[in-house]
Amino acid sequence: MIRTSALRRLYADNRAASAVEFALVVPVMILFLLGIIDVGRFIWNTNEVEKAVQIGTRWAVATDIIPGDDTANGLKNYSFAISGAVPQGDVVPVSSFPGVTCTSTSAGAVTCTCKAACSFSTVTTGDSFTNLVGRMNQIYGGISNENVQIDYDWSGLGYSGDPFGSDVDPLVTVTVKDVAFRPIFLAGIFNFGLPDLSYTLTMEDGEGDFSN
Rank of each mutant, 00 (worst) to 15 (best):
N131V: 10
S155F: 03
G56L: 09
P27F: 09
D70C: 06
F210K: 12
A81K: 09
T63F: 00
N147I: 12
V28E: 03
V94R: 14
Q54W: 04
T103L: 04
N47S: 15
L33G: 11
G156R: 06
P98A: 05
V176E: 02
T101I: 11
P183N: 11
P93V: 00
N14Y: 12
V133S: 03
G208V: 14
D167L: 06
I30H: 07
A17T: 14
T101C: 06
G84A: 04
M29H: 01
S96W: 01
A60T: 03
G108E: 02
C118R: 01
Y199L: 07
G56Q: 09
V49T: 02
Q88I: 11
I65H: 00
V53Q: 05
L186I: 15
V91N: 02
L201D: 04
V92C: 08
F164S: 15
R15F: 12
P163I: 00
I82T: 15
L171H: 07
S144W: 10
T63N: 05
A187E: 12
S104E: 04
V110T: 07
S119L: 14
N47F: 12
L10W: 09
G74Q: 04
M203W: 01
F190K: 08
M29Y: 05
N73Q: 15
N131K: 15
V176W: 13
M1C: 07
G40H: 05
S155Y: 08
G74M: 05
V26C: 13
I30T: 07
I37E: 02
T103E: 13
F190T: 15
G208E: 08
T130M: 10
R41A: 10
E48H: 10
D90W: 13
I2E: 13
